[in-house]
């Protein structure tokens, strides 16, 4: 098992390099000329100025040179500077990451618990009342776009009922856990509900499939109680595919949810990314994209390890 883990970890290095290269090169083709974002329009009339700036920032060097320069900086922990605000990207991320982590972790944990529980119960009591409500909810949850859902939540719970704040992460005067949580509820629940839908359907369907399999019949023929049939024999087998979805949601912890953060003015990574794209702040785009990609790789590594732990058949090729 250890050998398996080390092997998978080592495989991540070339993957990361490849991704960084693709992201870097890809961004060159978008046609964004950062120079125009850096200078005022009247300065742009003077092409000499522009050329001088290009030379200064090394934009005229060959692609590979620029790539390796950027990569070298990155490996030394120098993430570069935003060309819009001029602030260090590292500081920017350090400021925003906690907000994103907070929101995403809240939604991730809550949606996992709710989604899997309802999904499994729906499968066990197929065509029961919970199954019916769950199915309607899953369709609605998937059909309604997040932004619309978010705005509706604000309209109902913040503006009409006044229970929660309309946006932001904390009140200017408010400090402490209670205030944070109060701000977290609306964006957190919006994200949770939209994430629940997929998980619920998935958990229900895999569990249904498992419950129809022959080994469940064998388990029942032993005369063990039903809860053991469901939890010991059913749940563990049904969880393998569900776990894959869960793991691939982990990058969200870093990347955040662009739509939800935007709707609720949540100061997270998602907001940085949208701002960076809008303003052509390509060093920021590069770093955030790479971070999400790295998180994706970690997620897929986790999938490999967890499936191997859950399913002995995967361990054959060790």
């Amino acid at each position: 098992m250890l050998k398996f883990i080390v092997k998978k970890l080592l495989q991540m290095i070339p993957m990361l390099l490849l991704i960084s290269f693709i992201v870097f090169v890809g961004l060159q083709f978008t046609g964004i000329d950062p120079i125009y974002y850096m200078i005022s329009p009247d300065m742009a009339a003077n092409t000499d100025n522009i050329e001088a700036l290009r030379e200064l920032y090394g934009f005229n060097d060959p692609l590979l040179v620029r790539y390796f320069r950027w990569l070298g900086d990155l490996l030394q922990g120098n993430f570069g500077y935003s060309i819009v605000s001029g602030s260090s990207i590292k500081t920017l991320i350090a400021q925003r990451l906690p907000a994103t982590l907070e929101l995403s972790a809240f939604a991730l944990v809550l949606s996992t618990i709710i989604g899997i529980t309802i999904g499994i119960v729906s499968a066990i009591k197929q065509n029961g009342i919970i199954d019916y409500i769950g199915r309607v909810f899953a369709v609605v949850g998937q059909a309604i776009p997040q932004f619309f859902f978010g705005i509706s939540m604000i309209l109902i719970f913040a503006i009409k009922l006044g229970w929660f704040p309309t946006a932001g992460r904390m009140s200017p005067e408010g400090v402490g856990f209670g205030d944070r949580l109060w701000h977290l509820v609306l964006p957190g629940m919006t994200l949770t509900l939209s994430m629940c839908a997929v998980l619920m359907r998935y958990a229900r369907n895999t569990m249904l499939g498992v419950l129809n399999s022959d080994y469940i019949k064998t388990a029942r023929s032993k005369g063990i109680p039903e809860w053991k049939v469901y939890l010991k024999h059913g749940f563990r087998n049904a969880m393998r595919p569900v776990l894959v979805i869960l793991c691939f949601r982990l990058p969200m912890l870093i990347g955040g949810s662009v739509v939800i953060e935007e709707v609720f003015a949540w100061p997270g990574i998602g907001t940085i990314l949208t701002q960076a794209v809008v303003s052509g702040d390509y060093p920021v785009i590069l770093v955030t994209t790479l971070m999400v990609a790295a998180a994706m790789l970690v997620a897929s590594f986790l999938v490999d390890v967890l499936t191997a732990l859950l399913d002995p058949r995967v361990r054959i090729g060790e």
Partner: peptide, 28 residues
């Protein structure tokens, strides 16, 4: 079907061997 009485019989009184050994065992 899955009540206590029936469960007490399955195993100690009535044993069952199913058709397909390939899928009758829990893989994990």
């Amino acid at each position: 079907a899955y009540g206590k009485e029936m469960r007490k019989l399955r195993g100690p009184e009535i044993g069952m061997v199913f058709q397909d050994p390939m899928s009758s065992l829990n893989p994990v």
